[in-house]
Simulated assay, not measured.
Amino acid sequence: MNRIDRLSAILIHLQSKRRVTAQEIAERFEISLRSVYRDVKALQESGVPIIGESGIGYSVMEGYRLPPVMFTNEEASSLLLAGKLAEISTDPAVKKHFENALFKIKSVLRYTDKEQIETLEENVIVIPSSYNTSKDANAQYLSELQRAMVTKRVVHMEYCKAYDTTVEARDVEPIGLCYYGNAWHCIAWCRLRKDYRDFKMSRIVKLYVTDTVFDNSSHPSISEYLSKMTAREKQLSEIIIRIRKDVARYIGGQKYYYGFVSEEICEDDVRLTFLTSYPDMFARWILMFTDGLTIESPADFKAQVKEMCEKLYRHHV
Rank of each mutant, 00 (worst) to 15 (best):
V205S: 12
A299K: 09
L272S: 01
I117Y: 07
S218R: 07
P220Q: 01
V48C: 07
D5W: 09
T210A: 08
S237W: 04
A169M: 06
Y58Q: 07
K106S: 10
G57V: 01
S46W: 10
E45T: 15
E233L: 14
G253F: 08
Y180T: 14
I117N: 07
V213E: 14
D300C: 02
I241P: 09
Y180D: 10
I31P: 03
V36K: 11
C266D: 03
P279T: 02
L14G: 04
I243C: 05
E267I: 07
Y179V: 11
R3S: 09
G83E: 15
Y313D: 12
E118R: 12
E267D: 14
R232W: 09
N73G: 11
S217K: 10
G259F: 00
I31M: 12
P174Q: 03
P279S: 00
I31V: 13
T165H: 08
P298Q: 07
T21W: 06
G253E: 10
P128D: 10
D291C: 08
K135L: 15
L275A: 03
R65M: 10
M288I: 00
S16A: 15
N2V: 03
D5R: 10
A93D: 05
Q44D: 05
A101I: 14
W184R: 08
I125K: 11
I243Y: 11
V167A: 00
M288N: 07
E118S: 11
D91E: 02
I265R: 02
C190A: 01
G292M: 11
K245L: 06
R3V: 06
F214E: 02
I222F: 00
E121W: 02
I187K: 11
A26F: 01
M149D: 02
E27W: 00
M308W: 04
R3A: 08
E121V: 05
R34H: 13
T112C: 01
G55Y: 00
L33I: 15
H156K: 15
S218K: 12
E75N: 12
S218A: 12
Y159A: 02
I251R: 05
V261E: 04
S78P: 03
S218C: 09
Q304W: 05
K194E: 13
G176D: 04
S16C: 06
Y111F: 08
A101P: 08
K41T: 11
R65Y: 09
N216W: 09
T151W: 02
G83R: 15
V247I: 15
G253K: 15
Y163T: 09
R110S: 14
K302M: 06
V124P: 03
L120T: 03
L192I: 03
F282Y: 01
F301L: 00
K96P: 03
I88T: 12
A82Q: 13
V172H: 07
C309W: 07
P298G: 03
K41R: 12
G57N: 04
T133Q: 04
H316E: 04
K135G: 12
A26K: 04
